[in-house]
Amino acid sequence: MTKSKMTSLQRVLTTLGHKEPDRVPLFLLLTMHGAKELGMGIKEYFSKAENVVEGQVRLLNKYGHDCYFGFFYAPTEIQAWGGEVVFYDNGPANSGEPFINNIDQIKTLEPPVIADTPVLQEVLKTIRILHEKAAGEVPVLGVALSPFSVPVMQLGFEAYLDLIYNEPKLFDRLMAANEHFCVEWANAQLAAGAAAICYFDPVSSPTIIPRDLYLKTGFQVARRTIAKIKGPTATHMASGRCLPIIDDLAQTGTGAVGVSADEDLGILKQACRDKLTVIGNLNGLEMIHFSREETDRNVKNAIDAAAAGGGFILADNHGEIPCQVPDEVLLAISDAVRTHGNYPQ
């Protein structure tokens, strides 16, 4: 195999192995843009697997990036737990009123059964079809919310922090239920054809909790959970910082980390070298206003900082690109990677 003939999957696997592929892989983590491609509202778009498949195929053809993204919206899992999802015309669906409104509910909380949950079945169907279409050439990414981070939507942030600090037994009970579901959900996506699971864990970020507390909580949860997931995982901090816990993250068994635009990409890459692949860190919100020149400069700067030696995938900092980011910017990112991202550097 010569470098110039690499498929997206080969490119990604090579960089995950901390070697240089033919060029820097690009993950455009696009969800809502698929609805725009199909001329649909966001709620309608995510109501059927076929829509999301068609959206993802069109987006890949248009931008030539290196993954299919089987993710619908963050609160799909909350929907599975029986919670409310609120759709917006100009942004991602969000969780509604927390469905745990009294912490005593945790004592009897039972995880949802994936086979009985229509929205999760639609996600699995999407991954299955995308996997077939990819024909072994493009990785399909699945997403599972960390058992430690999903309670922000289950209880609300404030009640969850109070639980972490003041109710250790109920916290452990909640983690047990969430870990069970997370493992089942991640493995179901892998069985459907996902090449890897993005383990979204922003609450573990030092932006949200201090490292000493993380080591007693989110770190333990991640180690137990990731060990049971039967495929590769990438931990994503969804805009949160991670530099102070890089070595801890590597010990959770994850293979990559989605990093924040608030941290220096070069320093992150040094800290992660040969341990974790770095995914990031173009600022998704600023991307809305990028000119073509700014786009080119930002892509080049990221590649200069982190591409050497492999172990780097260019992506946004949050794990989902806002729907307000114009097509021209996405095309400019794709062009810039092809201009500046070829190996050897």
Partner: peptide
């Protein structure tokens, strides 16, 4: 300190 990455949001909240 939180802005600079020295402290966490949970510490700001508490």
């Amino acid at each position: 300190g939180w802005q600079k990455g020295e402290y966490a949001l949970s510490q700001v909240y508490m």
